[in-house]
Design a binder for these strands. Structure first.
Lengths: 263, 263
DNA sequence: AGATATTTGTTCGTATGTATT
DNA sequence: TAATACATACGAACAAATATC
């Protein structure tokens, strides 16, 4: 079967009215690779060949290769048999690249939870009854990280991170690459956002116990293959979590503002 | 208020065990920018200064700048007062970069619609009653593109693209950056995927009329501020569209396979 | 309009590092 | 160990773009 997606343009439409030579070279090399239907691991021509083929100097070609490398599309190795190789973009790199975009956007906790609330119930509904036992065991192992109440603030933060890991692991089991990536990206965002970090350091009575309770019931539903129940459990959990996070967001925000005002 | 998100790491964890000098420089420059809280439009030191600061040759520094440029984080201009400037990553670039990741994933029409089905009803529910009249008019203008039945296959394809534009425009009105981006990304994917292109060339009786009908009712609900109705309408439409697309996918796929078998 | 200064863009030649054989 | 093949890095020179006077 041929490729699913048409060559994703390196050349951005209105973004780049006049491209520099390295950009032209990067686009040309990319097209060249796509045309040939090259797959991850395949070797590109060496620098010398590329120089000859495109009529550009070494420096220009090297800059072009760096562009492709930054996008995660190739990797390079030195030495004999070395060179540039087609590379499958890793999930981690895709997350980092997309994170750069949202770095400049104003996103609140509510924005993230709006998507989690819409997506994660669908995720677990699809997953119910399809997970092999060893994967469910993996989930249960993550849960042991917050079996007992946290002693310190650091412990509390660690437990909250582990709770996010539970959801990330769950998402990684989805056969839908889009759903998988999107859920994991949102969770990654929660881990990175400073205001969430502050929230995770706060003590919220009953939160941990409630979290464990719903996760146990979720796993039970997943084992039983009851998609409807799994969806309902996740939906309820997301509603509750969203409410708490938004409350805490305003508390922390007020706290933060009064701190800075005092200064 | 300080930045929302912690410095997105250029340095990828396990991805890059030994970094090259340009990568080191790129990461250092990025950190330098983040530390200073520089905003889009701010100017970075010139190549000469960077060379001196990092003790690297011009070519190396330039490769580092290309890396940042490829990620959409800076843009450069020549001439006096020129140089590298912090750049807000554009939505188009973010879409292209993320598209590279999914280029290597096996995604089907069903995967995309699973997410659209989960997200777009939420989108319109949030939008209901908040859209100024001029934006609703914009939506209606897009709808004129498929007022009349298509005469040719090209016309049919154009109309289907316009119908996707309707949804993309709708999504662009969301105040939630994540929801906005995600919906628009999914729609962009539908436009790019070859199998969808094939489907869009096919004649599906009643599809256009049904689409227009639901869109009219949707706009009515949006004007009335009836979020529940808007959500229900969108949900029904997504269910129907998903069903049709998946049916057509299997038809087109069979067709394609028999064609290639014959060869 | 044109000259000039500033800054990035591109090239070439050479030397070094690194992994394979 | 040595030879080889490749990327990596440096430095100097020149070209092109663009703002300012």
């Amino acid at each position: 079967m041929e490729r699913d997606i048409t060559p994703p343009a390196t050349t951005l439409p209105a973004d780049a009215p006049r491209m520099s030579r390295p950009q032209i070279a990067a686009a040309a090399i990319k097209d060249w690779v796509v045309e040939r239907g090259m797959r991850p691991g395949d070797r590109l021509p060496g620098e010398a060949e590329l120089m000859a083929h495109f009529g550009m100097a070494k420096g220009t070609i090297r800059e072009a290769l760096r562009v492709l490398e930054a996008q995660g599309l190739i990797r390079t190795r030195t030495g004999p048999g070395g060179g540039a190789f087609v590379n499958e973009v890793s999930e981690a790199r895709a997350r980092a690249l997309l994170g750069n975009y949202f770095y400049f956007q104003e996103i609140g906790v509510g924005d993230i939870y709006a998507l989690r609330h819409a997506l994660e119930p669908v995720l677990v509904a699809q997953l119910a009854g399809t997970l092999p036992e060893e994967r469910i065991v993996l989930l249960e192992e993550v849960m042991t990280a917050y079996e007992t109440p946290p002693e310190t603030i650091e412990e509390s933060e660690r437990q909250r991170m582990a709770e996010l890991d539970f959801h990330a692991l769950l998402a990684s089991f989805s056969p839908n690459p889009l759903l998988r990536f999107q859920c994991r990206f949102l969770i990654g965002l929660l881990k990175d956002i400073t205001i969430c970090r502050r929230i995770y350091r706060r003590r919220i009575p009953g939160f941990r116990a409630a979290g464990r309770d719903y996760q146990s019931r979720l796993i039970q539903a997943l084992r039983a293959g009851d998609g409807g129940a799994a969806r309902a459990i996740m939906r309820a959990h997301m509603t509750a979590a969203q409410k708490i996070m938004e409350e805490q967001e305003s508390v922390v925000l007020r706290q933060f503002l009064s701190e800075t005002d005092a200064r």
